[in-house]
Every structure is written in structure tokens, then in C-alpha cells.
């Protein structure tokens, strides 16, 4: 079992190296990158915006409802919303949601190409199929921090609207809370995590799709396994990066 996991990890790193070998012609790659930006980034904005806005609102309401002690200032609602959204919700939990959305799309599309011999066709033509299929996804996901930036903004906006229009606090109190003890490095930390998660989101699902064997049923299974492993690695990397950057 352990040997199998180690061999899979080794295979993953060999794949990463292979992605950067023998690049595809730039005129073709450019189009592939635009397509991936459309599929992976633009296609995810709606769901990210929706989830972020409402989860921000819920965080704000939950915090407000738990502030029963009159000695605790109402500014804490804005403060808690900001910290939850910026530090964890936007970078980590949106990434896990994206492991489901983008990840299963990547695994199933590459997996289907594997079972229908499209990847063999690329290889026989002399195309580095890993570079052709995975590299544009990695480049497209360089824009992933913008998605997370949007998620942070909409999360805090949702929190502000829920708190102010729900009558839990006033707008100046919420904004004061947002500005309280603001540490700019927290934003840097969140975006460092986001960049690492972007690489994981592009490569782990690709690995599961590229090396899958079997037919249509196995494509479905590979998508599920890919989601599980992407989530597990995101959570582990979240822990490691938090220890390294914040402890």
C-alpha cells in the first residue's frame, strides 16, 4: 500500500517535469490557454461569487448572534468576518469547492481523451501530450488569485450587507471592525496559499485523468478519486503553509 502511494507520488513529480519538456508551438498554445481561461476561470466566477457572497453573510450573522456579552464591541462582527473570509474561507474552502468543480472537469475531460485514444493520437503525432494538455491549465490558473480576490471582496460585502441590513450593527461599526488590527501580511499569506492551491488544482486532477485506465465507468471513478486527493493535499498544504508563514 505504502509502496503504491510512494510510486504514485513519484509518478506525479515525473509528470510535472514532463509538462515542461518539448513545448507546444506558441501559436497553438496561445489558443489553448485562452480556452482554459474561459473554461476554468471565467466559468468558475459565477459559482464563486454566489457562494462567497452568501457565506460571507452567514459568517457575519453567526458572529453577531453569538455576541451576547454587551462588553464585546459590535466592531468584532466586521473583524471576524474579515479574518474568516480572508484567511480561510476564500483561499482554502473555495479551493476545495473548485477541486470539485474544476478538478472533476479536468479529470473527466483528460480521462475521456485517454479512453478514446485521443492522447495516444497526440503522442503518435509527436506532440508532448502532457505539455499540450496540462501546461495551458497551469498558465490559466495563474489567474486563480483574481478569483480568490473576488471571493474575498464579495465575502466581506455579503457580510457587510447581512450585518447592516439585518440590523445587527451599523455600517461605520462594521467598517471599523474590518480595519481593526489589519495585518497586510495576512493578505500575502492568503495569496501565497492561493498560488500553491492553483498549481495543485491544475496538476492533481490532470494526473488522475492522464494516467487512468479503463472505460467510461473508470472516468467517473477517477474524477471522484481526483476530488478526494486534491482536497486532502489542499488541506495538508494549508496546514504546512500556515505553520510556516504564520507560526
Amino acid at each position: 500500500m505504502l509502496i503504491r502511494y510512494l510510486s504514485q507520488i513519484g509518478k506525479y513529480f515525473i509528470m510535472l517535469k514532463e509538462i515542461f519538456n518539448k513545448p507546444t508551438k506558441w501559436s497553438v498554445m496561445k489558443q489553448l490557454i485562452f480556452k482554459e481561461v474561459d473554461d476554468l476561470i471565467i466559468g468558475s466566477l459565477g459559482i464563486v461569487a454566489f457562494i462567497s457572497f452568501f457565506v460571507g453573510g452567514v459568517v457575519s450573522i453567526q458572529t453577531a448572534l453569538n455576541l451576547t456579552n454587551p462588553l464585546i464591541p459590535k466592531e468584532l462582527i466586521g473583524f471576524a468576518t474579515r479574518q474568516s473570509i480572508v484567511l480561510e474561507f476564500a483561499p482554502t474552502f473555495i479551493s476545495i469547492i473548485m477541486a470539485g468543480k474544476m478538478g472533476s472537469f479536468i479529470t473527466s475531460s483528460i480521462g475521456t481523451m485517454r479512453v478514446t485514444e485521443q492522447i495516444d493520437a497526440l503522442e503518435v503525432m509527436g506532440v508532448n501530450s502532457l505539455n499540450y494538455l496540462v501546461f495551458p491549465k497551469i498558465i490559466a490558473l495563474l489567474l486563480y488569485p483574481f478569483v480568490i480576490g473576488l471571493s474575498m471582496f464579495l465575502g466581506v460585502l455579503g457580510g457587510w450587507m447581512a450585518a447592516v441590513y439585518g440590523g445587527f450593527t451599523s455600517s461605520p461599526e462594521f467598517i471599523t471592525g474590518l480595519q481593526t488590527e489589519f495585518i497586510p501580511f495576512h493578505i500575502t499569506y492568503a495569496f501565497i496559499k492561493t498560488a500553491v492551491f492553483a498549481i495543485l488544482l491544475a496538476t492533481i486532477p490532470s494526473f488522475h485523468g492522464y494516467y487512468m485506465k479503463g472505460g467510461a465507468l473508470e472516468v467517473g471513478q477517477a474524477s471522484t478519486v481526483s476530488f478526494v486527493w486534491t482536497s486532502v493535499v489542499i488541506i495538508l498544504m494549508n496546514f504546512i503553509l500556515t505553520q510556516l508563514l504564520l507560526s
Partner: peptide
Amino acid sequence: RELRTEIGMVFQGSALFD
């Protein structure tokens, strides 16, 4: 790589790009 560009292949399931 050069040699592969001289090869054409027709796969059993056609393997056309969807």
C-alpha cells in the same frame, strides 16, 4: 520526434478530438 511527424495513424475508434 522528426520521425513521428512522418507517421500517420488511424485508430480503431478514430480518436478524433471532440
